[in-house]
Simulated assay, not measured.
Amino acid sequence: MPRLGGGPYRGSRTAGPGEGEGESDGASGHRAHRAHHGRPARRARAAAGRDGAGWPGWSPLDSFTLESPAPGGGEGVGAVRVFRTGRHVSRERIVVSEPDRHFAYVLLSGLPLRDYRADVVLTPGADGGTEIRWRSVFRAKVPGTGWIYRWALGRFVKDVVRGLARHAAATG
């Protein structure tokens, strides 16, 4: 299990309807966010992974570029995507793309982190909505700075999840 400088994040919060909140499963380096919305979630499932160009419209991201498509084309497994937020640029490779269910990527560059992987899992809710679970695992390159990235990425991912839930509710 990856360890972050500064020890494990502890504590747990569960989101209410339409909210994304931070959660830890008690393991070092894990951060998860959830949101649930009651509308049919086809758009949320599509937007969660395969539509990077749409992310700047509902997330804190400023721009998107498909640096290299997947071997089969588009934003499938193997595609490299570039997102910009202000002066920050991050590059990521898609490693899992199961339409309407699971999307995962690894960070190639942009943050001083090792072994960064995020998994976005979408599950149908009993009310016809969708639960969005976004979980990131990483190690800080600089010892003692892991807590900073847990905090900053936790806030950022929470904003992304909330934006996705709002987008799905508005367009679902």
Rank of each mutant, 00 (worst) to 15 (best):
M1L: 13
P2G: 08
L4Q: 13
G5A: 04
G5S: 02
G6T: 05
G7Y: 00
G7V: 05
P8R: 12
Y9I: 13
Y9H: 12
R10K: 08
R10C: 02
S12C: 06
R13A: 14
R13W: 05
T14R: 11
A15Q: 00
A15G: 03
E19D: 13
G20M: 00
E21A: 14
E21K: 15
G22R: 10
G22I: 04
E23N: 14
D25V: 13
A27K: 14
S28L: 06
R31N: 08
R31L: 15
A32G: 10
A32D: 00
H36L: 11
H37L: 10
G38Y: 05
R39Y: 00
R39G: 12
R39Q: 05
P40Q: 07
P40A: 11
A41G: 15
R45F: 08
R50Y: 01
R50A: 14
A53F: 09
G54M: 11
W58M: 01
W58T: 00
W58A: 01
L61T: 04
L61Q: 08
L61R: 04
T65Y: 01
S68H: 09
S68L: 01
P69N: 03
P71T: 07
G72C: 06
E75R: 00
E75F: 01
A79H: 04
A79V: 02
V80I: 06
F83T: 04
R84E: 06
R84K: 11
T85H: 10
G86F: 09
R87E: 15
R87Q: 11
S90T: 13
R93Q: 14
I94Y: 08
V96Q: 03
S97K: 02
E98S: 14
E98Q: 15
P99F: 07
P99Q: 06
D100P: 03
R101V: 11
F103R: 13
F103K: 11
A104G: 11
L107T: 05
L108Y: 13
L108V: 03
L108P: 13
G110Y: 14
L111T: 03
L111S: 09
P112A: 08
R114G: 08
R114D: 15
D115L: 02
P124W: 01
A126M: 01
G129M: 00
E131R: 12
E131G: 03
I132F: 15
W134C: 02
R135K: 12
R135H: 14
S136D: 13
F138L: 09
R139M: 10
K141H: 07
K141L: 15
P143V: 09
G144M: 09
G144V: 09
T145R: 05
T145I: 10
G146C: 05
W147D: 07
W147E: 05
Y149W: 15
Y149M: 05
R150P: 02
W151K: 02
R155M: 13
R155N: 14
F156S: 08
D159G: 13
D159Y: 01
R162H: 11
G163C: 07
A168S: 14
T171M: 00
G172S: 02
